[in-house]
């Protein structure tokens, strides 16, 4: 990955709202913008679309136009390449064990906050 591409990935990841959008798309691949907005009380549709543009610019989100809808997918490749850059087989094993121990002890899976109310498409 070129330095400016990597800058874009880290900049895109440097906001909790955008990280939450990736959580949502990972869980519901192919959902549309309305669906993503349902998960946010604090920010509106315009802000969500801006965040999506940043994520798409960093190649972390792929969108596909189907009719009038825009379907969204999480693209894990840039994160995989960051992982490749700083991980060896050996460190992956031990770092993975420590990370899992932390998740287990803190009992803290990554939460997706759901906004109350019905689901629209």
């Amino acid at each position: 990955m070129k330095p400016d591409e990597m800058d874009a990935v880290f900049a895109a990841l440097a906001a909790e709202s955008r990280r939450r959008i990736l959580d949502i798309l990972k869980k519901e691949p192919g959902c549309n913008v309305n669906r993503v907005c349902e998960f946010f009380d604090d920010i509106g549709r315009v802000a969500v679309m801006k965040h999506l543009d940043v994520l798409e610019g960093a190649n972390l989100v792929l969108s596909e136009k189907v009719g009038r809808e825009r379907l969204l997918y999480f693209n894990p490749v840039p994160i995989h390449m960051i992982y490749d850059r700083w991980t060896t087989e050996y460190s992956a094993y031990w770092a993975g064990r420590l990370a899992r121990m932390k998740y287990r002890l803190e009992n803290a899976p990554i939460q997706i906050n759901r906004k109350k109310g019905g689901s629209r498409g």
């Binding site: 591409e5 691949p29 192919g30 190649n59 792929l62 596909e64 997918y73 693209n75 894990p76 490749v77 840039p78 390449m81």
Partner: peptide, 9 residues
């Protein structure tokens, strides 16, 4: 049935 997409340049 689900779809997954991956992209790289």
């Amino acid at each position: 049935k689900k779809r997954a997409m991956f992209r790289v340049v």
